[in-house]
Design a protein around this nucleic acid. Structure first.
Length: 356
DNA sequence: TAAACGTGGCA
DNA sequence: TTGCCAAGTTT
């Protein structure tokens, strides 16, 4: 492994990238803010999913200042359906730091940019290299897969300490004439050529440098040990309507799962001898009469499963509703940020009521 | 260090 | 149908 060899890998990769790269919205700009937004949205999320969200988001919040001034509820509504909602709140917190402490200029060095909320080692390197053309590593899952194959690295990429090996490898290979194209090329190669299964090695611009291809073990890499089993939660949820037509909605806690998102009153009844009505009265301070079943389904999160049964319900008597709950008109319900499983219930309710 | 944190697509 | 994956960060 010498410098000339490394230089050749970089050149091959970069010329391939400049020729074959996909035409993506965030590749039309050098604005560090927009690059930042795209990188956060792309965390653990497919490109095709991100594109429409990115377009709407940038159109609504075209600058650091506009996002800094946004209301959190409105921001979460823009993020609705994208998942990992703390990304949105961390992004805004980070943006506010830049506006207030860095005179609205995104820091151009790893030390400072890494202090921003929601900016980890990957996002820091991505923004620095793509927006500022600074030779910094940006190691994501693609990069680890690509380099584990090229360099025949057999460390377990599920372990966090392994990432350091790849960060050093990237810096050794870094094509300093064009860090932006080099880092993006590494990721682009992983996305469309050096795929997890059935990599298209015959189309690969760097296969002549690839140890795994040489040994025919590209499908065996990277090594990744994972297996977290999910826990099942049996939930009952109710869309409660008051005589004046308003609906009871609850804001989830500001930490943990689906933080600050809204939902209909929901209780977990594993092996309880209590009825839904009893537990709802206890938890929410409303007496209800359960009506027809709305929809029943499983919603699978990354680490747990909700098995939801949902019902219509009428308000019989209102005592003192819990602090984080509120009655909303149908229009107002539509404006609250709700996670996908809650949206499913809401859509089922509206369909039943023939409300569009 | 490992677990928490969403969602949709696909073999 | 089940399990795994996708441009990670926080705690």
């Amino acid at each position: 492994m010498n410098e000339l060899y490394n230089k050749q890998i970089g050149e091959s990769l970069v010329s391939w990238f400049l020729e074959e790269k996909r035409d993506l919205p965030w590749r039309k700009t050098k604005d560090p803010y927009k690059i930042w937004v795209s990188e956060v949205m792309l965390q653990q999320t497919k490109v095709d999913t991100v594109i429409p969200y990115y377009e709407r988001f940038i159109s609504k919040y075209p600058s650091l200042e506009s996002l800094a001034e946004a209301e959190e509820g409105e921001l979460l509504k823009e993020w609705e359906g994208l998942g990992y909602y703390s990304r949105a709140r961390n992004l805004q917190a980070g943006v506010r730091e830049v506006v207030e402490e860095y005179n609205s200029v995104v820091p151009n060095n790893r030390k400072e940019i890494s202090k921003l909320k929601g900016v980890g080692p990957y996002t820091a390197g991505a923004v620095l290299s793509i927006a500022y053309d600074i030779p910094e590593h940006a190691v994501d899952g693609n990069v680890m897969r690509v380099l584990s194959r090229i360099l025949l690295i057999k460390e377990d990429i599920a372990k966090q300490k392994t990432k350091k090996i790849f960060e050093e490898a990237v810096m050794n290979l870094m094509f300093k004439d064009n860090p932006s194209a080099f880092n993006q090329g590494l990721m682009e190669l992983g996305a469309i050529i050096c795929t997890p299964t059935k990599p298209k090695c015959l189309l690969c611009p760097v296969r002549e440098y690839c140890s795994a291809f040489y040994e025919g073990v590209q499908e065996e890499l990277p090594i990744k040990t994972i297996n977290k089993k999910t826990k099942l939660h049996k939930m009952k949820a109710v869309v409660i309507q008051r005589n004046d037509g308003k609906i009871l909605l609850e804001k989830r806690p500001s930490k943990g799962l689906l933080a600050n998102m809204w939902q209909f009153p929901m209780v977990e009844l594993p092996t309880s001898t209590h009825t839904v009505e009893e537990v709802v009265e206890l938890d929410y301070g409303v007496e209800i009469q359960k009506g027809k079943e709305l929809i029943a389904f499983k919603h699978i999160f990354s680490h747990l499963v909700w098995e939801i049964e949902s019902f219509e319900a009428k308000l019989m008597n209102e005592k003192k509703i819990s602090l984080n709950s509120q009655w909303y008109s149908i229009e107002e319900v539509n404006d609250q940020p709700m996670p996908i499983p809650v949206l499913k219930m809401w859509n089922a309710w509206k369909e039943r009521k023939s409300i569009t």
